[in-house]
Nucleic acid binder design. Structure first.
Length: 227
DNA sequence: GATTGATCATGT
DNA sequence: ACATGATCAATC
């Protein structure tokens, strides 16, 4: 997916926000055409819309372990929304460090780092709407408020303690008020290192943190309610 | 309709 | 294997 039209990285948050606002109301098809990105089948290329927005906004860290807009410290997330603007899916945050989680406090957690500054870019995602006709929504540059951070910290602590005690295989997506810990891998037979109850290294299913749709919905709603 | 567990493509 | 980008689809 090499674009013919390269977009330089934004020089400031304001410039990034302005670029993102310009996407609002435009269709996926139009933006893709402007950057010479061929449409793809989402059933196979699930991250295609996210890649497209990275290209359109001038993201710098494609496929590297760094924020999308490295110089600004901003992470970009496209969020699939219903016609009413409500998120339809949970949002991937980061892989869970299963071997070390028990010793990592919230302050040093990868979840906190990843969510410190996020540019949310809503995209219509009703199944009946052809990909090219889906429209971008009004974006939001967000950092967790004190209450949101406290809520996330509680979930982190719960998961951290469980995994630290070697109970990683007891975890289900039912746990966590706002965060989930769910499989993330090529398949159900993917493995990564974890620890058991005796602290021994074991090979277990890779898990990742996701934000529940309800949490992201509240973030997006608030941005329209605030004066 | 919302949710959970599974899965897809690609780069390092 | 693990990171990036996520949605699919069976099930609740």
């Amino acid at each position: 997916m090499l674009p013919f039209v390269l977009v330089s990285p934004p020089g400031s948050e304001e410039e990034l926000a302005e670029r993102a606002r310009r996407l609002a109301g435009r269709t996926v098809g139009v933006v893709a055409a402007q950057h010479s990105v061929p449409l793809a089948d989402l059933r196979r290329s699930k991250g295609w819309v996210g890649r497209l927005v990275e290209i359109a906004l001038g993201a710098t860290a494609a496929s590297r372990a760094a924020p999308d807009f490295e110089a600004l410290g901003v992470e970009m997330k496209t969020v699939p929304v219903s016609a009413a603007g409500a998120p339809r899916e949970s949002t991937f945050v980061c892989a869970a460090p299963l071997e070390t989680m028990g010793e990592i406090g919230w302050e040093a957690s990868p979840v906190r780092k990843k969510l410190a500054r996020v540019l949310w870019v809503p995209v219509e995602a009703d199944k009946a709407l052809p990909l090219a006709e889906r429209r971008f929504g009004v974006p939001l540059l967000w950092s967790p408020g004190p209450e949101e951070e406290e809520a996330l910290r509680r979930d982190w602590d719960e998961f951290s303690e469980r995994v630290g005690r070697g109970r990683v295989e007891d975890i289900t997506a039912h746990m966590g008020r706002h965060l989930q810990l769910r499989p993330k891998g090529a398949s159900a037979s993917s493995v990564r290192w974890g620890i058991d109850e005796d602290g021994n290294a074991i090979r277990t299913l890779p898990l990742a943190f996701y934000l529940r749709a309800s949490f992201v919905r509240a973030i997006l709603e608030r941005s329209f309610v605030q004066p």
